[in-house]
């Protein structure tokens, strides 16, 4: 069983996002380790890009600092390997924009990422229509043909598909049906960042997706507090928290302590959501 599948045994799961290299590389590794060991079930590990057009100001700022600190794709993958060496055994999913992956060499990128211990990929500027190049790179990772059209490596290290509130029904059905790993449901139209309240139509949106999806469904964008996480956790299989995580930890004098506290508070809230 893949790490991702394993992680969804106890739902709803808590998925924080944190960019490697922020506020510096060593601290970011310590922070991610602390998140993993204090309640995160899966971590979205951020790769930085100069032009993060799906991100709000907080993540823009953090990834900008990471770049100024000299983060690269190569160093990011080495950091993932270091996390595995430290005994982090939850799934780690890389979240990053497409161009740095292309510049690294796509096949080499997915190969090196999986070697380093990455379990999946989220690429916000790669919709279904443009995903083939990426999935075929995943397909070349090797693995044996076992009667399933997908090679085991692809199944085990999926490119996560996103769904948005604007996605029309037919398209939603197609994406949901083909989704691997889990579905990333964007809860609001907009960029990443906290919102005052959870969008009203979320329950209905989740119900619509569930009709077609066999993969677990995680909700992200706009969730900022344990209370909101709890509310969403009652409806979804996982809760993704990015901006609030970056803000709480990045703004702290003691980022590792802040990470522990942050993970515990959300973990607790989601335990309550599970009832």
């Amino acid at each position: 069983m893949s790490r991702i599948t394993e992680a969804f045994k106890n739902k709803p799961i808590f998925m924080p996002y944190f960019p490697l290299g922020y506020p510096d590389l060593d601290t970011s590794i310590d922070v991610i380790e602390a998140l993993a060991k204090n309640g995160a079930d899966l971590i979205e590990v951020g790769l930085s890009f100069s032009d993060p057009l799906a991100d709000g100001p907080v993540i823009q700022h953090a990834t900008q600092i990471a770049l100024e600190q000299g983060i690269t794709v190569k160093k990011s993958l080495q950091a993932v390997a270091e996390l595995r060496k430290r005994g982090v055994d939850i799934p780690l999913v890389l979240m990053g924009y497409y161009n740095p992956m292309l510049a690294y060499g796509l096949e080499k990128f997915v190969h090196d990422a999986v070697e380093a211990g990455v379990d999946g990929f989220i690429v916000p500027d790669l919709p279904m229509e443009e995903a083939e190049e990426f999935t075929s790179a995943l397909g070349k990772l090797g693995g044996r043909y076992d009667g399933d059209a997908l090679s085991p490596s692809y199944r085990d290290h999926p490119l996560i598909q996103m769904l948005a509130p604007t996605t029309p029904p037919e398209r939603m059905e197609m994406i949901a049906r083909n989704a691997k790993g889990f579905i990333y449901l964007v809860s609001v139209t907009g960029v990443t960042g906290e919102r005052k309240s959870i969008s009203e139509g979320l329950g209905e949106l989740i119900a619509r997706v569930r009709e077609h999806a066999s993969a677990p469904m995680c909700v992200g964008f706009g969730i900022g507090t344990p209370e909101q996480a709890k509310e969403v956790g009652k409806m979804a299989d996982g809760v993704i928290v990015g901006t609030a995580c970056v803000k709480a930890i990045g703004g702290s004098e003691q980022p590792v302590e802040a990470a522990k506290e942050f993970a515990r508070s959300f973990r607790e809230a989601l335990r309550e959501a599970a009832g």
């Binding site: 916000p124 279904m128 229509e129 598909q161 996103m162 948005a164 604007t166 029309p168 964007v186």
Partner: peptide, 24 residues
């Protein structure tokens, strides 16, 4: 499915967040 070709040879395409795909 698009009505027109999205690419010029290997160039072009629609590399945008899912939220924007319906608008395109």
């Amino acid at each position: 499915m698009t009505l027109l070709p999205t690419k010029f040879g290997k160039y072009g395409g629609q590399f945008v967040p899912e939220t924007l795909m319906p608008a395109l």
